[in-house]
Design a protein around this nucleic acid. Structure first.
Lengths: 109, 109
DNA sequence: CTGCATCCGCAAGGATACTG
DNA sequence: CAGTATCCTTGCGGATGCAG
């Protein structure tokens, strides 16, 4: 697994790296006020493959935006939720989302 | 040139696509309150190659976040600035940047 | 249920040289 | 000055199968 830890050129670069990629934004967003299990996430993020889900979650966990809680049960159960740092991003993602909605509406014409 | 126009899964996805990529955030940010020429941008975005600068600017222009003004002079002169839509993003990028700064400070230890 | 292992294609991005 | 034109590398992300 290759998790991007290289130096950012600036804070903007740094921030976009943590939140960029194809699914990070969407995952953080669906976790905004829920604690979700792996399978629930998989269903929520339409089109994601298990590999990408696991990989992206690991990166988010490594950046301490998402925390992972394992229940030692059979069958296995793992829950994902936002960390405090992750929650700080929610309002920003929310604004981006609103902006995106406006744009999509504007161009639908 | 391949500019990403495929359907977004949702508004979050849409927004991140417009602003993602390796340089879009940084370019929008340095243009936040200046009108810059090609060469000035190139110097401002440390590490970018002419190819990526041109390509990224084209995508931003195509998404109507940046506008391009050509002066028919010798030597040539081209100025880039934010559109109104682009300016809407600045506060959001600013917040992301602040968040990034805090994170970088936290981890510097 | 929650993943990991493996293989692979393709597009994003990089290096370098050249042009109007 | 403001880009193009080529060629090349990398690694993201997809597909599929297997495992605890």
């Amino acid at each position: 697994m290759k998790i991007n830890k290289e130096k950012a050129h600036c804070a903007v670069d740094y921030a976009f790296k943590r939140v960029g990629g194809k699914y990070k934004g969407r995952i953080l967003w669906v976790l905004r006020d829920d604690v979700l299990r792996y399978g629930e996430l998989k269903r929520a993020i339409v089109g994601i493959t298990p590999k990408m889900l696991t990989q992206t979650l690991k990166e988010l966990e490594s950046d301490e935006l998402v925390s992972r809680k394992v229940y030692l049960e059979v069958p296995p159960k793992v829950e994902y939720s936002l960390t405090e740092t992750g929650k700080e991003l929610i309002p920003l993602i929310g604004q981006l989302r609103s902006w995106g909605e406006n744009q999509m509406a504007r161009y639908k014409s």
